[in-house]
Each structure stands twice: as structure tokens, then as C-alpha cells.
Amino acid sequence: MIEWLINGLAAVLILAGCGFFLAGTIGLLRLPDFYCRVHATTKCDPVGAVLILTGAGLLSGPDLGAIRILALIALIVITSPTAGHALARAGWHAGHRPWTRENRDEPQ
């Protein structure tokens, strides 16, 4: 019974994670400019990855694999915003002007 519950919870987490990855990818394609696309990749993707890894951790049980998964979660949570910030900062200093509905410029 407990094993069934753990497997079910892991499946829900992994499916939810895949859903966030899908949303991030759709956002990357649909959002209008560079800065908006950075939102999609740096928000939905880490949440998706953490959910999938948590589900995998539940399936692996309390062993070395679970410690590896915790280390990976920490790595993703730290590096994802840092990489997103580096990308956005590079764009900002390169002179990319953010698109807004008011200025109605062609998205960059």
C-alpha cells in the first residue's frame, strides 16, 4: 500500500515536472522578446527539473541515489537563476531594449 502511494506520488511529480518543461518550451517559442524568453527558461525549467528529480528521489528510496538527487536539486536551484541573470545582463549591456506594448517596436 505504501509502495503504491509512493509510486503514485512520484508519477504525479514527474508528470507535473514534464508539464512545467513543456510550458517553458512553449514560452520560449511564443514570448515576444529576449527578456521574456529568459523568464520562461529560467522559471518553468528549474521547477520542472526539481519536480522530476524529487519524483525520481522518491522512487530511488533512501540511498546514495537520493543524496545525488538532492545535490542535483541544489545545483539546479543555484545555477539556474545565476545563468539566467548572466544572460539577461549580457543582453542589457549589449543594448537590447526590452519590448513593451507601449513602444510597439519589433521584438528583438
Binding site: T42, K43, V77, T82, G84, H85, A88, R89
Partner: peptide, 24 residues
Amino acid sequence: NSITLTPGTHCVDLDDDRLVIHYL
């Protein structure tokens, strides 16, 4: 980093005490 992790806002630049934040 917290602003960047909170969806809808993204820290673009940090210069001394001034943050440049992009929002959806």
C-alpha cells in the same frame, strides 16, 4: 537571485543598490 527565481520578475542588472528588474 530570489527575484529571478520568483516567476514573472527577472533581475537583469545589479549596480550597487539599484536593481534593474524585467517583469512579464
